[in-house]
Lab assay of single mutants.
Amino acid sequence: MGFKLLSKLLVYLTASIMAIASPLAFSVDSSGEYPTVSEIPVGEVRLYQIADGVWSHIATQSFDGAVYPSNGLIVRDGDELLLIDTAWGAKNTAALLAEIEKQIGLPVTRAVSTHFHDDRVGGVDVLRAAGVATYASPSTRRLAEVEGNEIPTHSLEGLSSSGDAVRFGPVELFYPGAAHSTDNLIVYVPSASVLYGGCAIYELSRTSAGNVADADLAEWPTSIERIQQHYPEAQFVIPGHGLPGGLDLLKHTTNVVKAHTNRSVVE
């Protein structure tokens, strides 16, 4: 069995187990497998329904001669939608809004960016022009300005110390501490036991640490421990890039980060 097929099978099995364990909360999309990078042309966006009122959005972007996937989250909030992270750029984010209108038909009224990198804030200006209120932590807003990236308009308070959590509509926002970046936030959907790890969490097929220019490698494993301790009931975990899975993604990420750190020390 090929690795790609095995990865998709694991996603399907995880979703099936969740649907059985929580039949009222989960209505997993039966329309197909989780979209992969090879299936999404740059400039297009796919939506994948995880649970009743919960979707991931998947886009792709060219970077350094390669094409990478990027995940975000959409959560229903009454007759409105909360968006977590842009679709990595203005063109993708405009396509995301169009796809949401086509498939869901509810307005996106608020959006949260989970850290300051372009795959999370690139497209904020498109959201703002569409009347979406954009939010991020003060740290993310400051770092985005320093980096020359787009800056969300509103500040999220109460997320300055490791372990801080605040309720934001249908989700809980959690600051686990520094990891992929010093400002990275985690998003949890309690009604569906869905954990969105953003770039602080890796997919299972990833074996290298990737972009760690703004990471705190020493603190990252401790931050992941905080996530595990705060959300032990999480059933569906979405990484910032690639295929979702279960809580095993947290341990896998820790292993990859520690291996990278150990290699760096040896070198």
Score class of each variant (00 low, 15 high):
1 M>P: 03
8 K>Y: 07
9 L>H: 06
11 V>K: 05
13 L>K: 10
13 L>H: 13
17 I>G: 05
18 M>K: 04
19 A>S: 08
20 I>P: 11
25 A>I: 10
26 F>C: 11
29 D>V: 09
31 S>Y: 05
32 G>R: 11
32 G>I: 14
35 P>C: 15
36 T>D: 14
36 T>E: 12
36 T>H: 15
39 E>W: 10
39 E>T: 07
42 V>T: 10
45 V>S: 13
49 Q>C: 13
50 I>K: 03
55 W>L: 03
56 S>K: 09
57 H>F: 06
58 I>W: 09
62 S>W: 07
63 F>N: 15
64 D>F: 14
64 D>H: 14
66 A>V: 11
68 Y>S: 12
68 Y>W: 04
75 V>C: 04
78 G>F: 06
80 E>F: 06
82 L>S: 06
84 I>T: 04
84 I>N: 01
84 I>A: 09
86 T>R: 01
87 A>W: 00
87 A>Y: 00
92 N>D: 03
93 T>N: 02
95 A>Y: 11
95 A>I: 08
96 L>A: 07
96 L>T: 03
96 L>I: 04
97 L>I: 04
100 I>W: 02
101 E>A: 13
106 L>W: 14
107 P>V: 12
110 R>H: 05
110 R>Q: 15
112 V>I: 07
115 H>M: 00
116 F>T: 03
116 F>H: 15
116 F>G: 05
118 D>P: 09
118 D>V: 06
121 V>G: 01
122 G>N: 15
123 G>T: 03
124 V>I: 10
126 V>G: 06
127 L>F: 05
129 A>S: 09
130 A>D: 06
134 T>N: 03
135 Y>S: 04
135 Y>Q: 01
135 Y>A: 03
135 Y>W: 07
135 Y>I: 03
136 A>R: 03
137 S>E: 04
138 P>Y: 15
138 P>F: 09
145 E>K: 12
147 E>W: 12
148 G>Y: 08
149 N>Q: 14
149 N>S: 09
151 I>W: 09
152 P>A: 14
153 T>K: 08
156 L>Y: 02
157 E>K: 06
159 L>K: 02
160 S>R: 14
162 S>W: 13
165 A>T: 13
165 A>W: 10
166 V>M: 09
167 R>Q: 07
172 E>M: 14
174 F>D: 00
175 Y>Q: 03
176 P>T: 01
177 G>V: 01
180 H>D: 00
180 H>Y: 04
185 L>S: 03
186 I>A: 11
188 Y>P: 01
188 Y>E: 00
189 V>D: 03
189 V>T: 04
195 L>K: 00
195 L>M: 11
196 Y>C: 03
198 G>Y: 01
200 A>N: 00
206 R>P: 04
208 S>V: 11
211 N>F: 10
212 V>I: 08
213 A>R: 10
215 A>C: 04
216 D>Q: 09
217 L>F: 13
217 L>I: 13
219 E>Q: 11
219 E>A: 10
220 W>E: 01
220 W>Y: 15
225 E>Q: 10
225 E>V: 11
227 I>M: 15
228 Q>V: 13
230 H>G: 11
230 H>V: 10
232 P>R: 10
232 P>F: 04
236 F>L: 10
236 F>R: 09
238 I>D: 00
239 P>R: 01
240 G>H: 04
240 G>D: 04
242 G>R: 03
245 G>Q: 03
247 L>R: 12
247 L>P: 06
247 L>C: 13
250 L>K: 01
251 K>P: 15
254 T>A: 11
257 V>L: 06
260 H>M: 14
260 H>V: 10
260 H>F: 08
260 H>L: 10
260 H>G: 09
261 T>P: 15
261 T>H: 15
262 N>W: 07
262 N>E: 08
266 V>S: 14
